[in-house]
């Protein structure tokens, strides 16, 4: 009995040693020479492999950034400036700070604002739906609410709330990797600067139809009236194709446009509440 046990142990130990030696030599023989800095950079990166930087993953990003002469065009949206600073330090390069970004769903066509005109009964995917027809509302441009962005998000930061019917971004979780921007067949989602204390002013509409058509389809749509553009003291707002757009690099967050908008298509985010003006209870959300 004891003999058997001892024999077994001895065999296993011997086998273990044999394999260890073989593995060691094989590893030496087939070693891939790699720039050690790639490993260093990769260890700094968040390791989410989201592809938000435009590379195949964190390792590919590290390889490419090490090969490149400078930091131009390389930015990890997940790690943001702190990570990029560290990467630049590790490579002994200088880096420009980028303003932190966040994904914004430019549609406020909720179930309440935008009545459904037909019922979609196909596979629940915005892509399938968009290739079939204009959508289940009178608006051809707005959120279809089937959640392709939700499926694309690796950070659980964007959801289609069934009660609203429009995708909603969780600002705390959003890393601005841009996966949802690519996934959205309607091109509604935009990466915008987070802004000072996360404060932002955004037109939540991309409807290019004429004002009357838009108004019929959705009560919160931009009708392209241009009041906001006239009101803006900084010239940050342009109206093109019947829809207003606020350049977040120019906007000074004065919020005059928010008050001027007749359909409340311009929304403000994360500002402290204004006590003096009675605001209509429209959705204040992303």
């Amino acid at each position: 009995m004891t003999g058997t046990i001892l024999f077994t142990i001895a065999t296993l130990v011997a086998l273990g040693l044999l394999f260890a030696v073989v593995l060691y030599f094989v590893a030496q023989k087939f070693k891939v020479e790699e720039d050690p800095r790639i490993g260093t950079v990769e260890s700094i990166l968040p390791g989410a492999n989201c592809g938000g930087c435009g590379h195949a993953g964190c390792h590919a990003f590290a390889e490419n950034v090490v090969k490149a002469p400078d930091m131009e065009g390389f930015f990890c949206p997940v790690g943001g400036n702190p990570v990029m600073t560290k990467v630049a330090e590790a490579l002994g390069r200088a880096v420009e700070e980028k303003a932190p970004m966040v994904a914004v769903v430019r549609c406020n066509g909720t179930l309440a604002n935008r009545p459904r005109t037909n019922e979609y009964d196909g596979y629940a995917s915005c892509k399938v739906m968009a290739s079939l027809y204009a959508g289940d509302t009178g608006c051809k441009f707005g959120c279809l609410g089937k959640g392709d962005c939700e499926a694309a998000c690796k950070f659980d930061a964007i959801h289609v709330d069934p009660a609203r019917g429009v995708a909603t971004v969780d600002e705390d979780k959003c890393t601005a990797c841009g996966a949802c921007v690519k996934a959205c067949p309607k091109g509604i989602i935009e990466l915008r600067a987070k802004g000072f204390k996360n404060r932002r002013v955004t037109v939540l509409c991309v409807n290019k139809d004429k004002g009357a058509v838009t108004r019929k389809a959705c009560s919160a749509g931009c009708i392209g009236c241009g009041k906001c553009a006239k009101t803006c003291p900084f010239g940050a707002i342009t109206v093109e194709n019947n829809v207003a757009y606020i350049d977040f690099n120019v906007c000074k967050l004065c919020r005059k446009c928010v008050e001027s908008c007749p359909t409340h298509a311009i929304n403000e985010f994360n500002f402290p509440p204004k006590p003096k003006i009675e605001e209509k209870p429209h959705e204040e959300n992303v």
């Binding site: 196909g122 596979y123 995917s125 399938v128 290739s131």
Partner: peptide, 12 residues
């Protein structure tokens, strides 16, 4: 299963 929905999408 909406086979054709999926196939049509990937075909495109």
């Amino acid at each position: 299963i909406p086979l054709l929905d999926m196939i049509r999408m990937s075909k495109a």
